[in-house]
């Protein structure tokens, strides 16, 4: 469906940050996903209209990047399998997630599960992200508990510090003070892309 006035206002707020409208295509694709819960043809048409690109050009860009997804559940669980996580049991974490959810990597049920390459949490391996909010030092048992929580509680948003406290262990470094904001769904929680939720 076409964007409401709030989404259009956010789009304009994003576009003015760049010297050329086309440079806003990446944040606008996130905005489109936040509006529809996933990337849709209608969303890409809106992005095309706002950036002065053709829908085909927008699709060409969207299909290049792994974080623009045509199919998504309520939440996205990404398990890292790159070398540092591999060395410390990332494969077992992925197996636990698949077993607990019954969802294979790259597939979507109530939530989406994927195996991903390095998320930059190598000192806290193995690492998992939920809606791109990081959890470090995750054991297979913790990964199961995390998935159960997502499936049973169906939280409206996820906060990285809470996830880390409940389901994480060893961290790459001291994160410093906790942040009370998190992601409303499987889009990076970065304003004004429209996905930050939570609050004090």
């Amino acid at each position: 469906m076409s964007w409401d006035s709030d989404t259009r206002a956010r789009a304009e707020e994003i576009i003015v940050r760049y010297p050329q409208r086309r440079s806003a295509v990446m944040p606008l694709l996130y905005l489109a996903m936040a509006a529809d819960g996933k990337l849709t043809d209608e969303g890409m048409r809106e992005v095309a209209e706002h950036t002065g690109m053709t829908p085909a050009q927008v699709y060409s860009v969207a299909s290049f990047y792994s974080m623009y997804k045509r199919e998504l559940g309520e939440h996205l669980v990404s398990v890292c399998r790159s070398v540092s996580c591999h060395l410390l049991g990332g494969d077992d974490v992925l197996a636990a997630v698949v077993d607990e959810t019954g969802i294979r990597p790259g597939q979507t049920g109530a939530i989406t599960v994927e195996a991903v390459e390095c998320v930059g949490a190598c000192g806290g391996a193995p690492a998992v992200q939920v809606d791109y909010e990081l959890v470090e030092g995750v054991s297979p048992a913790q990964a199961r508990a995390l998935c159960r929580w997502l499936l049973d509680e169906r939280p409206g948003f996820v906060i990285g510090d809470d996830l880390q406290a409940r389901f994480g262990g060893q961290r790459s470094f001291d994160w410093g003070p906790a942040e009370p904001v998190g992601a409303l769904g499987p889009v990076p929680a970065f304003e004004p892309y429209g996905t930050t939720g939570g609050g004090a």
Binding site: Y18, S23, M26, L29, Y30, T51, F64, Y65
Partner: peptide, 28 residues
């Protein structure tokens, strides 16, 4: 200063791919 978010492509760490990406193109 504009803070720009990538979208999951390691290749965009290569400087010319990054520039293409920032121009709103595929990150080649």
């Amino acid at each position: 200063i504009t803070v720009h978010l990538g979208a999951g492509a390691y290749i965009c760490g290569e400087e010319t791919a990054l520039l293409n990406s920032l121009e709103g193109k595929r990150g080649e």
